[in-house]
């Protein structure tokens, strides 16, 4: 029974991890850009959500606004800085985004201080659901459902619409898309803003679960990269499967090998990379 409980808990955890990683996966998959500021956008989203709540704004509006504000900020960063280095070596991407991440982290410390903070669960989702010995918070169930719906919407947007087709074509050959009359720069900006906005949304949704602290971005970035590497770099479906795999492994290991539960996630990544070097659904 305990293993079944842990698998169910792991599915919930995995959906959270997918939500964390999906923005990174989109940016990498479509822009071939390694965004080490992804965790910082998550952090900024969490703190903006917190700040809006402090000003009396409703939780649902707060997470929506936080996502939009971070997306707008990311669009400015992309247009003002990152688009100038897309064609440079990946080391430039890394240096630029790490610098950006450190600036955002220090900004959070300056504005909100190094001490963590707490966000209450929305009143409508305060309770727990009980199935025998298995107990699960209603808010986490909501996040799982929300993430599932979000995954479907993103999949439809990227795979089932003309806009998605243009974006995907742009990721294969930006020059060809430009020759067809599409503004590839705008498309790239939109994709980057979407990825960053999703990170911020994840940050806002995570606040009632894990609270806030200025270093939460680093933790989120590590998990996001593990999910993206296991799933296959740039694979949307791979990120979903990997998120679930990581969540279930971590949760099951909490019973089987508790002290190694976090380590098991990285062992799983190593095993997947050794057996399937491109990840579960990575492209050649």
């Amino acid at each position: 029974m305990i293993y079944l409980s842990q698998i169910v808990n792991g599915i919930g955890l995995g959906m959270l991890y997918f939500l964390l990683a999906v923005g990174l996966s989109i940016i990498f998959g479509l822009l071939h850009f390694v965004n080490f500021a992804h965790g910082a956008f998550y952090l900024l989203g969490a703190y903006l959500c917190y700040a809006l709540l402090q000003h009396g704004i409703d939780f649902w509006w707060a997470i929506t606004l936080a996502g939009l504000i971070v997306a707008a900020f990311a669009a400015l960063v992309e247009a003002g800085l990152l688009r100038r280095i897309y064609r440079l070596d990946h080391m430039y991407h890394i240096v630029a985004t790490i610098g950006l991440a450190l600036m955002i982290q220090e900004f959070v410390i300056i504005v909100w201080g190094p001490v963590g903070a707490s966000v209450s669960t929305p009143p409508a989702l305060v309770g727990v659901v009980m199935l025998g010995n298995f107990i699960y918070p209603e808010y986490r169930i909501f996040v799982v459902g929300f993430t599932a719906v979000l995954a479907l919407v993103l999949w439809w947007l990227l795979e089932g619409t003309r806009l998605g087709a243009i974006v995907r074509a742009g990721s294969e050959s930006s020059d060809s898309i430009s020759l067809l009359g599409y503004d590839i720069k705008r498309i790239n900006t939109a994709v980057f803003a979407l990825g960053a906005g999703l990170a911020a949304l994840a940050g806002g949704l995570a606040t009632p679960i894990r609270g806030l602290d200025p270093f939460m971005g680093v933790e989120a970035l590590a998990i996001a990269f593990v999910v993206v590497v296991i799933g296959g770099m740039g694979s949307f479906t791979g990120a979903l499967i990997a998120g679930l795999l990581v969540g279930i492994v971590q949760s099951l290991m909490a019973t089987i090998w508790p002290e190694g539960a976090s380590l098991a996630v990285y062992i799983a990544m190593v095993v997947v990379v050794l057996v399937m070097p491109r990840g579960l659904l990575g492209r050649a």
Binding site: N9, L13, R210, E219, Q250, A254, T255, P258
Partner: peptide
């Protein structure tokens, strides 16, 4: 339930306790 020094996710350990 033992846990590592770097983890911030405790739902698995709490599930152990509740069981």
């Amino acid at each position: 339930s033992y846990h590592s020094l770097d983890t911030q996710e405790f739902s698995g350990y709490i599930t152990n306790a509740l069981s």
